[in-house]
Amino acid sequence: MTDETNPDTTDADVMLTPPDPEAHHAIEVVDLYKSFGDLTVLSGIHFHVDRGEVVCVLGPSGSGKSTLLRCINRLEEADLGRVLVDGEDITHPDADVDKVRTRIGMVFQQFNLFPHLNVLRNLTIAPTGVLNTPKDEAEAFAHEMLERVGLSDKATEYPSRLSGGQQQRVAIARALCMRPAMMLFDEPTSALDPELIGEVLDVMRSLADEGMTMMVVTHEMGFAAEVADRIVFMDGGVVVEEGTPDQVLRNPQHERTQRFLRMVDHN
């Protein structure tokens, strides 16, 4: 059963004991492979996020960072390898994906708010429908989350009436309404006009300050340097280098990391 070469991992425990949330990484990715047709996007990824940790994933476009993130809640199915969430193998055929997803909030580059529902309904449709939260309770919590992202006056608006920055903040509130244990951010500011990026990063920063477990795929170097506990640099479908922001951004060891940071700096 233990075909792992790395003696440091606790895979033996994972296999033998029932999931114990305290004993495992929040997210653990073991030897993950994924290709689209002939194109190999992930080739043997090892990756983890600890509880309460903020991990920013950097890398050039096409490096596989978004695919890695999407494999973690199985929006993308890995070809090989395992993804463990709180120690539970969610790539196992018997895993209840829908249930796992309720514990993982996700924020998309294109916001993906539901255009036919107003803001409040966007926030309550999953809690009432999936978690069976009573309507008044779900709405009260939704108002709380809207206040938290600074949009308490927009509850009855439709998404098309909001700016991009406001839409993304609603999307974050929508994910928070499921009371997730962790949040995945897939380039949350890449579709925004420059002047709207700040308000979204502020919300994310406050989430990190409150101890939310976060995995953030981003191009915002400043945010990564300031907020991340750990930075993972990916290129060509593998993790090239990881460490604290100081280590990776100021003193990169790998030539590919250095080249990437030079290119970003010049922009």
Binding site: L75, K99, M106, N112, F114, G129, V130, R174
Partner: peptide, 8 residues
Amino acid sequence: EAARSLGM
């Protein structure tokens, strides 16, 4: 994708 990621 947004709906499925919310557990629907």
